[in-house]
Amino acid sequence: MPQTNPRWDIFCTVVDNFGDIGVTWRLARQLVAEHSVQVRLWVDDLRAFERLCPEIDIQLAQQWQQGVEVRQWPAEWLPVDAADVVIAAFACQLPAPYMDAMAARAQPPLWLNLDYLSAEDWVVGCHGLPSVKYRHVQKYFFFPGFRQDTGGLLRERGLLERRRKFQQDASAQREFLQGLGVDRAPGRQLISLFAYENAGLASWLDCLASDSTPSHMLVPEGRILGDVERWLGVEGLAAGDVHVRDGLTVQVLPFVRQDQYDLLLWSCDFNAVRGEDSFVRAQWAGRPLLWHIYRQDEDIHLDKLEAFLTLYTKGLTRPASEAISGLWRAWNAGVTMSDHWLATRKHSPELQQHAEAWCLEQALQDDLAAALVQFYVNWI
């Protein structure tokens, strides 16, 4: 590293409750822990942050959490010196006085727009390219991704080894689940469900309830609970509630911090996830998954969905590929899931093997934090 302990500023505006802050909080912690840099994380909504990090004091303008300096992004910006590396997460607009501070530095900072994750072909061509300038300060595009010549995915050092040990330790899994109040009965498939509102959920739950293989669905508190309530015919579901209908047990879990959510994903046989952060973590779990992508205007999110499916299903037999792709498309369209779920269940062994192979393949790339640090080293 050409400079000892370079200073990094990461700016995050909370758009979708937990996705943006989830990514930036993971990134900030990893930069501090593994790359010995100083990080200030500027967040405009500490209440959302508190769900991921309960130690946060939402009243404080400045505090330190796990080695990261957390700063409240104030409505009225107070002057601060610009850092050596400035990351605008997901195209958020930096405060005008801060941009002036960047331009006032003798050595301009490296200014990066950390963009949303996508498997689309054009990402490879745009990654690392110059973007706009502010005075003489140049901004660059930085794209996470699934291919070489992108920024890779967030992955902490030793993550897959910790996951492997946990998944091979039945007592560790049992202890973790019991800590959440979950008793896993032998022979039940365990499914996690973290999703946006979805009209297709009822048909999936109907199918699970009537399946000859019993299922136990774990639902962390979140936006999908309203659809679960309607299917169960109850109101006011809360953490700890358990309902059984035929072969399906539905259990509501508390919203857990990120490290516990990883363990939840590692414990389950199948994971339904949403957005970006949980989507990536489900891939590191090495288990079959179902992605509820964040909806965008004019359905452009569906292009991202198809681009990922094109990459992800390589190596699968045609029937298995059609089954999992059909399930994802139905889920994201909010239509009937039953036939697609039954087809997916038929190919469970192949999809399980493929999920692990995909995980290991992605781990061959540099992780996102390491790629960002290397980009800075090359730039400086």
Rank of each mutant, 00 (worst) to 15 (best):
K165I: 01
V132Y: 13
S131M: 11
L205Q: 05
L180R: 11
D100Y: 03
L180P: 04
F141V: 01
R184K: 15
Q148T: 15
A185W: 08
E161V: 01
L180D: 12
P144K: 09
L114Y: 02
F176M: 03
G151Q: 03
G200K: 06
R135M: 07
Q178D: 12
P108A: 08
G145P: 02
D100V: 13
Y196D: 09
G152A: 02
Q138G: 05
L114G: 07
C126T: 06
D100K: 14
A104S: 15
A170T: 02
Y140D: 07
Q167H: 06
K165P: 00
D121G: 09
L205P: 02
G200A: 05
G125M: 04
V132D: 15
G179C: 05
A202W: 07
S171C: 11
R155A: 06
Q107V: 13
L193Q: 09
T150V: 00
A195G: 03
A96D: 14
W204H: 07
A172F: 01
G158Y: 07
E156Y: 05
D149S: 13
G187H: 10
W204T: 02
V137G: 12
Q138D: 07
S131N: 15
D115V: 00
I191A: 03
F194W: 06
L190R: 10
A195W: 00
L160V: 00
M99I: 02
R147G: 04
K133F: 10
N113F: 00
R164L: 09
V137P: 10
E175I: 12
L154K: 08
R147P: 01
L193C: 05
